[in-house]
Amino acid sequence: MSIWKYANPKLFMQTTDRVLPFLIPLTVVLMVVGLVWGFFFTPDDYRQGATVKIIFLHVPSAMLGINAWLMMLVASLIWLIRRHHVSALAARAAAPIGATMTMIALVTGAIWGEPMWGTWWAWDPRLTSFLILFLFYLGYMALWAAIEDPDTAADLTSVLCLVGSVFAILSRYAVNFWNQGLHQGPSLTIAQQQHVADAYWYPLMISIAGFILFFVMMVLLRTRTEIRSRRLQALLARERMA
């Protein structure tokens, strides 16, 4: 048995039926613990005051904004190469979540930027890259919405996702070249924690874990919806044939 067996819609539905009852409460617990701990039970930063606590929303959403696209890229490749329908639908399901996460990262960044840098928006490379990433999400979702035939839509959006990924990376470098920027380097790497004090590190990790599980949960739920909607189309098609 290989991992590919989960690409079978039936097995996917059965497996997620069993997983979701555990996943949903776990997600809620992690997010509530991470955010409540982060917001109310951490000390204020000596320079940034309480504003720093937006990090518990900003960092996880920014991570997911990028990684959702990465997941869509992998799912698109799986669809193009192995023609597993669930994979294409998972990519479709992930896009609005990724776009929302990108939006949250941008909005929380603006709210944080105002007291820190004295401006809601600056054409800083990181901010600009995220805005461009958001545009890529919009285009991807618009293409899905515009095409009626589901397999054609899956094929074309997968091709767009591939090409878009290359251009997203190019844009990242181009934007860096264009403006050196205000934004600090990444505050977090999993191995090191030198930029972040312990008091923030644990709630931040819990919050990130909560966001990741939230993303997984939403993708699973939305993929289930997509599978059901495809089933509906199949039944309607049968009526037309009869």
Partner: peptide, 10 residues
């Protein structure tokens, strides 16, 4: 069900 596509077996 359906037309024998991948989504019937689901």
């Amino acid at each position: 069900g359906g037309y024998g596509g991948a989504f019937d077996e689901a």
